[in-house]
Design a protein around this nucleic acid. Structure first.
Length: 350
DNA sequence: ACCCCTTTGAAGGCG
DNA sequence: CGCCTTCAAAGGGGT
């Protein structure tokens, strides 16, 4: 807990595992890098009581979730207490607490029903750890087949999924098959947060573009207090543990460049034009000024290519030692404290 | 049909 | 060890 995080946890959250200020877990779990292997039944209990007791009886065995896109199952996640709704403290000052899932909004994305990567193969589930998942249990929407219960797609040989990811796989394997066999990364804390909160933000905002929504979600993520973020870090830790159990040999490396094109853009962007993407020109998130706690989604957008230095927004001018280099250097270049809000192409820690 | 955008975090690789 | 890159989700927009 205290001291340097394990190697594999070097990217733990800002106050996350291994960080000195991180709140202790109720079970004393050492963190992301722990070899601690809790009973699988308790793996997906994503709430404050997740270590103290098993899920409520009505929840039964966590449902197997299947991603609607790939048709592959993903490990179940217990909905947050309160049927998918989040405690008021998670809501930003501009988001009403009484938010409900918008009519017609897929429960899969808004209700936190299945943050686990859709990569988890049906074969792995069928032949995975015994007693882990039971396809007949579930909390899925009755009118809309829960992703977990959807067809896993073409028949797959048990454990083919994993094997193909590491071995060469059949040479005649089609791209579609490869895609379906793709084991995705477990979701990190922010991804879990995003998956859950996206629908609420979308409902609150006229904007529908995910890029814009994600900017808001990024703000809200930073607006969360530690305890709230800690929930998501804990969830992510469990996601990772479960993923590890399901795919012991899986490596994130397996997913590199599986989708043909390599992403060179980021490198290029870092060279200069990040923040000036087409979408950024169209509507760029205006970050609140220092000390400004809230923002209005309606007036968050400006029509030019301007975004604040995120480090400044995140840490404030008083804690410049926390800033990333580009943000620091950009401040040195200008004495105008608001200049970074007016013009920002600075690369951000990525 | 596919890629981009945008966010944070995790992980792998390289020098 | 520090830095860089890629990939997780999402879906509108662009090509």
């Amino acid at each position: 807990m205290v001291g340097k995080p394990p190697v594999q946890d070097r990217n733990a959250g800002p106050f996350g595992y291994g960080m000195p200020s991180y709140p202790p877990y109720s079970n004393g779990s050492p963190g992301l890098g722990s070899k601690f292997q809790p009973p699988l039944a308790g793996l997906m209990m994503y709430n404050n009581d997740h270590f103290a007791q098993p899920p409520p009886a009505h929840m039964g065995i966590p449902p197997v979730h299947i991603d609607p896109k790939s048709g592959l199952p993903r490990p179940p996640v217990y909905p947050y207490p309160g049927s998918g709704q989040f405690p008021p403290s998670l809501y930003g000052p501009d988001i009403p607490v009484q938010w409900q899932r918008p009519p017609g909004y897929p429960i899969t994305s808004g209700a936190f029903s299945g943050p686990y990567p859709p990569s988890l193969s049906s074969s792995s589930f069928r032949f995975g750890p015994p007693g882990l998942f039971h396809p007949h249990h579930g909390l899925h929407h009755p009118g809309m087949p829960h992703p977990a219960l959807m067809s896993p797609g073409p028949k797959q040989e048990p454990q083919d999924n994993h094997r193909n990811m590491h071995d060469q796989g059949p040479p005649e394997e089609t791209a579609a098959q490869k895609k379906k066999n793709h084991i995705k990364k477990p979701l990190n804390a922010f991804m879990l947060f995003m998956k859950e909160q996206r629908a609420k933000v979308v409902a609150e905002c006229t904007l529908k573009e995910s890029a814009a929504i994600n900017q808001i979600l990024g703000r809200k993520w930073h607006a969360l207090d530690r305890s709230e973020q800690a929930k998501y870090y804990e969830m992510a830790r469990k996601e990772k543990e479960l993923h590890l159990q399901l795919y012991p040999g899986w490596s994130a490396r397996d997913n590199y460049a599986v989708h043909t094109k390599k992403k060179r853009k980021k490198k290029d962007i870092h060279g200069g034009e990040k923040g000036c993407s087409p979408i950024s020109h169209k509507m760029k998130l205006m970050w609140p000024k220092d000390g400004q706690e809230s923002y209005s989604p309606q007036d968050m957008w400006v029509s030019d290519c301007s975004s604040a230095k995120k480090c400044r927004a995140r840490y404030g001018v008083e804690q410049q030692n926390q800033w990333c280099k580009p943000c620091r250097s950009s401040l040195e270049q200008t004495s105008d404290p608001t200049a970074d809000i007016k013009q920002s192409n600075s690369p951000e820690v990525q």
